[in-house]
Amino acid sequence: MSPRSRNAAFQAPQPPPAAPISENPAVCLESMFLHIWTTSMRDLPFVNAALSVEAVGFRRWNSSKASVVDPPLLAASTSDVGCALGDWVGAVITPWFINLFVLPGGGNLWSDRRSGERCQINFPIGPLEFIADYSPSAVIPSYQYCPLFAPPSQIASQAAARAAAMAALDAMFRTLGEASGPALNSVSTTTVPTDPLRRAFFRRVVRR
């Protein structure tokens, strides 16, 4: 195989540097994905009509250690969830996915990347793989996401989806040993299927 044949047929252009978001992005994310839902996703066969668009659990966060991605992220300044500065971390629920999200907020998690490019971001549980997306015309043009359920066909209700998303967020801000216990097991099995959540979430933890 020649070196030329190993090159990707298409590579998305490098986006411009993302502006830090100063306010909680939950409302803007809900507006953006609600528009997608009503204009292009509603009639697709794989959507879960029991779910609606909702952004949950968004907070600022900085990694407490250097990232393993190449190129490396900036050195950490703080790791407090409630710190005034930091990138935005949360989850978005839609009828076609439940994903973890990272958005630029002036912290050390974010790095500008092409659409479709993958990177690892450090959390207390360990490095997790996120996928970059960029759409210049969108309300929030740049974000990175880690799929939890896509599609979320096994989720029975919005309450169950919210519980699953919050359990995953709780787990990622704990160490691996802590998260494998109370972070997920505290969620009632009558509310959300914890075993699929555990598999979907922890298979994205890079082995240390």
Rank of each mutant, 00 (worst) to 15 (best):
A26F: 14
A9M: 13
V187L: 11
A164K: 00
R42V: 13
D133E: 13
F149T: 11
S5K: 08
P193E: 04
R174Q: 13
A132C: 11
P124F: 12
Y143A: 04
D80H: 14
P152F: 01
G82K: 14
V56P: 09
F149R: 08
S67K: 00
T190F: 08
S52G: 15
S2C: 03
A168K: 03
A161Q: 06
A165W: 00
A8H: 07
V81H: 08
L109N: 03
A26S: 11
A161S: 13
H35T: 02
A163R: 13
A200M: 11
V102T: 15
V56G: 09
G126P: 11
G181K: 15
L184G: 00
S79E: 14
A159Y: 05
N48F: 04
L34W: 06
I131R: 07
L34T: 15
F149M: 12
F46M: 05
P104N: 01
I155D: 10
M172C: 04
C83G: 10
V81S: 02
V206H: 15
T78A: 14
V81Y: 09
E178G: 08
N48H: 07
V56Q: 08
I131N: 05
P71N: 05
I121R: 06
G181P: 03
A159M: 06
N62P: 01
G106Q: 05
W88F: 02
T175D: 13
T189H: 09
D170S: 05
F149C: 06
C83I: 01
W110M: 01
A179I: 10
R42W: 08
A132M: 06
L148V: 04
G177T: 07
P20K: 07
A84H: 08
P72L: 05
G107R: 04
D70K: 11
E117K: 10
T38P: 00
S142Q: 13
L74Q: 08
P45C: 06
L73H: 13
L29M: 15
A75F: 05
F149D: 04
P3F: 07
V27L: 11
A165T: 02
A8W: 02
R162F: 00
L109S: 03
P152A: 02
S188E: 06
I155T: 03
N108A: 13
M1L: 09
